[in-house]
Nucleic acid binder design. Structure first.
Lengths: 331, 331
DNA sequence: CTGAAAGCGCTTACAG
DNA sequence: CTGAAAGCGCTTACAG
């Protein structure tokens, strides 16, 4: 039988409340009794039942993490597993547990959120992506439920919606700027997931900087972050254009573009992707890619949320630096 | 304020116990009161507090999943994310929640297990790998804590240790047999993680079949499932041997072997890997690989564990078929 | 500094 | 079929 606080109390010859106090270390306790209680805890191998504790404290110290339902990207894109790892590391450090919900379809994300919120099982929620008119965020905001999102929400100044993001707009601007300096005057942008804010922000920076530098640009959107969509996107991009460089919003797309160019014998096209994915099958030439630091995105998301839960957060967002890994060293 | 069973009871004009009964749908309830209660629940938007429920039922309907601490493999190997997805899908179907613990180092796995067990937060535990003299399994067995492991434990007939595995021994035997029929007489085996039972089983099948068929074999072990270790492993394997085929216990290793062979201009070597990883950078020639069906491994692990928790499990293990995806169609 | 009591939100014998 | 009561294992005012 699992031993409880009563067993410890009896063994130490004190009241359960006293045991509780020495565990929480919150009020002044006589040194002698403290030692006695600690000994009994040790001797009996007592560990508190966190369920009972949660019931009275109204805090479970569990964070619910909702994965995007797009299965395909999950499998091929290291972003998710790295972010998860970052989330778990940070949570563990603060003695929080993590509960993941893998959505199976469009609606299951919102359902997971509702389920988390209504069952009282989590103190806060973390979303791994943001969309335009995000239903999950809307729900969470309505119920003022503590949450953090990786990516930039449409409304960035709501006190209840924390967020962590790269500076995507600046990053694509910077890339365009660098390309321009190297003499690239015809640049394509291949996006996917049109309603994901990450795509929108990268596109925005791209477009603005192109217009500023007077660069010929074209933009193509595909459905998914996938090699196949990279290939079909490249078909469209290179149909009538004299592009010399392509920025892809994800490396999976970039691999598809690379394949297209190889097959069609189109040479000397500069490709830049995002996420710095190691392709494993390491035979093709590598292209440049932006390392978005997924691990840190996950960690900072947790730090932000947990700070909020402990009511000592300063900001409601955090920018994680993205870093262009350029194969030409100095682009 | 969160509404409770008392609020519903008051609204419906019944006792809390009655509300509880209509929710659990466990005892006979008058149709009229049932409807009244249901209406009140609907009207007030009541959802049970699962913490309180867990406290009395001693069941949390949460499963703890312990990830192996080897971070490297996590990032590159789709096995984990696919298994996680399988786990989550199956758990959700049975209305269980999943809590993941990402180990950071060798000891953190056991700590995660101990933590799960002692805090009363999970009903059962799932391990994503098994090792020789597995400390986690030993602990779980000692406390008779319900658990399932993906992979084959050393002791396969303990009623308390459920497991799900491919038939790894048979699979490598089968591969060797096929290779032999195609005329391969010098075959290498490149393993990693010497203390993982999956490696041991695959090696065993390999060795036995080679000796049976009178094939010249050699075995090399490296530390990790990684491309780098595949490369160094190939260096060793091809030092003095006239190998014509190499079986790698993981595709990540196989990619390294492939790279070595390409660099050294060694041609016509048959490579066979495990896990059927899509390399993304799709320029090198593909090699054959065994699809271990990670998604199903995860699903079946959960099904087994949950059956056990509901005391209606028939077996304590389940074999998931692995399938050789041969690039030559008929090897 | 410490104990007795109430309460967190449920479930489940025990009566009737 | 339904209610009153006890209890799951904690925490936290309230006294002293």
């Amino acid at each position: 039988m699992k031993i409880t606080i009563k067993d410890v109390a009896k063994d130490a010859g004190v009241a359960p409340s006293t045991v509780s106090r020495v565990i929480s270390n919150t009020s002044r306790i006589g040194e002698a009794t403290k030692i006695r209680v600690l000994n009994s805890i040790e001797k009996l191998g007592y560990t508190p039942n966190i369920l009972a504790r949660s019931l009275v404290s109204k805090k479970t110290k569990i964070i619910g993490v909702v994965m995007p339902h797009e299965a395909d990207s999950l499998f091929s894109n290291p972003f998710y597993i790295q972010a998860m790892k970052g989330i778990s590391i940070a949570a563990e450090k603060h003695k929080y547990h993590i509960m993941y919900a893998f959505g199976k379809n469009k609606n299951s994300e919102l359902e997971a959120v509702k389920n988390f919120v209504s069952s009282n099982i989590v103190d806060g929620i973390c979303l791994l992506t943001t969309r335009k008119k995000d239903a999950c965020l809307k729900y969470l905001e309505k119920y003022e439920f503590p949450c953090v999102v990786i990516g930039r929400p449409e409304v960035t100044d709501s006190p209840n919606i924390l967020w962590v993001d790269n500076n995507n707009e600046e990053t694509t601007k910077d890339i365009v700027k660098r390309l321009f300096l190297k003499g690239y005057k015809n640049i394509g942008y291949l996006g996917a997931k049109k309603n994901w804010t990450v795509s929108i922000n990268r596109e925005k920076g791209f477009k603005e900087q192109c217009e500023k530098e007077d660069i010929n640009w074209s933009i193509v959107y595909e459905n998914d972050f996938s090699r196949e969509n990279g290939y079909t996107g490249a078909e469209k991009l290179f149909k009538n254009k004299n592009l010399t460089a392509v920025i892809c919003t994800d490396d999976t797309l970039a691999f598809g573009v690379q394949r297209y160019l190889t097959e069609k014998n189109i040479e000397d096209i500069k490709i830049i992707g995002f996420n710095n994915i190691d392709p494993l099958g390491n035979f093709g030439p590598r292209f440049s890619s932006v390392d978005i630091n997924s691990l840190k995105l996950g960690k900072e998301a947790m730090n932000l949320l947990i700070s909020k839960l402990n009511k000592n957060n300063k900001n409601n967002y955090k920018i994680v630096e993205a870093k262009l890994i350029d194969i030409e060293e100095a682009l």
